[in-house]
Design a protein around this nucleic acid. Structure first.
Lengths: 159, 159
DNA sequence: CCTTGACCCTGGAGTGGCTACGGGGTGTGC
DNA sequence: GCACACCCCGTAGCCACTCCAGGGTCAAGG
């Protein structure tokens, strides 16, 4: 009992927001801990370990569903690990696809950025002209010699 | 009137899902079009142009709020285009930050992938061992000599 | 004893950018 | 007259959180 952590302590120990920890519990990734007399969550070392594992996997950008499957594999060490390989490969493929489109994006934005001339009224702005021309399907600096436009990506929020 | 498009035609012409077009209208990016007698939306060439512009910006991964500001700049050609420059720069910075963390990610996943030995039971899986060790904060193949773990990224859905 | 402040609890709503669904109406060809 | 493709609207769901309201708990300080 001396090692029991309250949620805030667990959060500080792992660098995870308290709300996120509760979210993981609700999502079934982190088992519901014991409660102390006042109803506060009381975490032990296994929770700390599991939470750290989850965060490491999230840092590798795995979806929670995949992490759940990894946790299952750990819980059952006799199971086949082909599943694990598949998850990692799929993750790698996702990351690479995103890398490709991000690189194309960077090129396009750089080309676009170079178009801003001296005019400081929007009517003369090279960037706007370029974007409009591109939308018209004409050859444009940002797409010329570039890969086909990547599918839109979701924005990330600032944590 | 002969050039009026119904929503499905506009969608096919631009490669945009019908539901997405309606979503843009609700979000205030695409002005509400006229309606024909049966209540169907009737789009003209300006809508086509504007929608293509929006999609081109989305292909550059801009958030809708930024696209809205670009559209405002276009509507007011006498306005200062410093705003446009700022948007593009900010977008470029976002893309580059993501590129960096994606590259680190790829490295880490590759290192991880290389750990899968011959054992096909999860208990002997090098990947799982590595992930667990990493979660414990020990030096791990995937983080050794790597940049600090990037913040988690949202997953993209397949369109 | 009372207050202040840090911490904890729950449930619910909001984020972005769509996507899917349910329940209906319209228009065309066979 | 009926199948089928298309259109309407409104609502709910997706992901992984994030924030908020409205309350409870507990130790230190006055």
């Amino acid at each position: 009992m001396s090692t029991a952590l309250r949620i805030g302590e667990l959060g500080r120990a792992t660098g995870v927001d308290v709300e996120t920890i509760r979210y993981y519990e609700k999502a079934g990734l982190l088992p519901a801990p014991a409660r102390s007399g006042n109803g506060y969550r009381a975490y032990g070392p296994p929770h700390l370990e599991r939470l750290a594992f989850i965060r490491h996997c999230r840092a590798l950008d795995m979806p929670l569903a995949d992490i759940r499957r990894l946790l299952d594999s750990i819980a059952d060490p006799a199971a086949d690990c082909g599943d694990v390989n598949e998850l990692i490969d799929a993750q790698l493929a996702r990351v690479r696809a995103r890398l490709d489109s991000m690189r194309a994006l960077e090129r396009q934005l750089l080309a676009l950025r170079a178009r801003c001339g001296e005019g400081h009224r929007a009517g003369e702005c090279g960037i706007l002209h370029e974007l409009i021309a591109a939308a018209h399907g004409e050859a444009c600096a940002c797409h010329r010699d570039a890969a086909p436009a990547p599918a839109p990506q979701p924005q990330r929020r600032q944590p």
